[in-house]
Simulated scan of single mutants.
Amino acid sequence: MPELPEVETTRLGLQSHLEGRRIRSAKVRQPHLRWPVEPDLVRHIRGARIHRLTRRAKYLLVYTDTGCAIWHLGMSGSLRMVEAGTEPEKHDHIDWGLDSGWLLRYRDPRRFGALLWTSGDPLTHKLLRNLGPEPLSGKFNEDYLFSVSRKRRQPVKTLIMDGHIVVGVGNIYASESLFLAGIRPDREAGSISKARYGRLVEAIKQVLQRAITRGGTTLRDFIGGDGKPGYFAQELNVYGRAGAPCPTCTRPLSDRVLGQRNTFFCTRCQR
């Protein structure tokens, strides 16, 4: 599913197309997504001007002069710009017609995504208000991660994938970050020193920023907002490479299931 780097890549690809534009029309072909699209959504956004496009965790926030639309791409959703008049395909569920003559089109074959609306502060919405800090922000640092890990017996990988602890560190990026930091994913979170958490914080920031720069990780369905696929998958060190040689020591990489997610690591380089 699209993770933080893919969502951020989508935001960067769409930003110049949306900000400052007015929504001239809207069409909802399929309202039954993960949560039903609000029946009055078209009325709320028709004629509204888009002021900002931001991101919180894996949610895209479209601020307008009438309220804020909250998009979630789910398992297979994508947002892209298409020329007005482009015929929709089977899984193209929502269009916003802009005064530029282009359409913002939402496609979602599995319909696990969502489009929500709020007239208030979206950061206080029930889906966003209890989320942890952004991993690329200054609030996510070694002092914070060390503090929240104390007395926790869960594996460190499940800790950093908990959105209440830190947002956006999905399965791929957790495995890659732990490898870069030299920490076994099944280590008990409360047993890891502050210095090692400092290395893990830096690794998470480095891996996510590199993924954003490369356009995200294309494994199944993801397409960036500009229609171009991401390329970070070509640079994965451990994820999906069980049995392949470790890029550092050449020992075959191992895998196991943690928190119902496949996890990949090196038994020699990670401890």
Rank of each mutant, 00 (worst) to 15 (best):
P185N: 03
T218Q: 10
T248Q: 11
T213V: 08
G182Q: 09
I172Q: 10
T248I: 09
C246H: 12
G227Q: 07
R251L: 07
L219E: 01
P247C: 06
S254L: 01
G216P: 06
G170A: 11
P229F: 06
R214S: 15
D226G: 13
Y239H: 14
L258D: 05
T250P: 08
R241K: 15
G216S: 01
C246Y: 10
R220S: 11
F179R: 10
V201K: 12
R220W: 06
I204D: 11
I204C: 15
E235W: 03
R184F: 01
Y239Q: 00
Q234W: 00
A203Q: 12
I172N: 07
A211Y: 07
Y231I: 00
G243R: 04
K228L: 12
G216M: 04
T218I: 01
T248S: 13
G170P: 14
N171Q: 04
P185T: 01
G227H: 04
K228S: 10
A195F: 00
L178Q: 14
K205R: 13
Y239P: 06
G227C: 04
R214M: 15
V238F: 06
A211N: 03
E202R: 15
A244G: 07
G215V: 04
E235I: 00
T218V: 01
T250N: 14
V201N: 04
A181P: 03
I183F: 09
L208V: 10
G240M: 03
T248H: 13
G190N: 03
A242F: 03
A195N: 11
T218E: 01
G190R: 08
E176K: 07
K194W: 08
D226S: 09
G168P: 12
K205L: 09
R199S: 13
V238K: 02
L208G: 09
Y239W: 10
G230D: 01
I183G: 10
G243Y: 09
P245Y: 06
E188N: 02
R256K: 15
G198I: 07
A233D: 12
G190V: 02
A233G: 11
S254F: 00
G243T: 11
V166S: 02
G259P: 05
R184W: 02
G198Q: 11
P245C: 10
A242K: 14
D221I: 02
C249E: 03
G216Y: 05
L208A: 12
P245N: 07
A195C: 00
K228T: 14
R199T: 09
A233L: 05
G225H: 05
L236C: 05
D221S: 13
V169Q: 09
I192N: 02
I204L: 12
A189Y: 08
G168K: 12
S191N: 05
A211K: 00
R251P: 00
G224R: 03
Q234F: 03
G182Y: 08
P245R: 05
F222T: 05
L219I: 15
G182I: 10
V238E: 05
R196W: 08
A233Q: 15
K205S: 04
D255E: 13
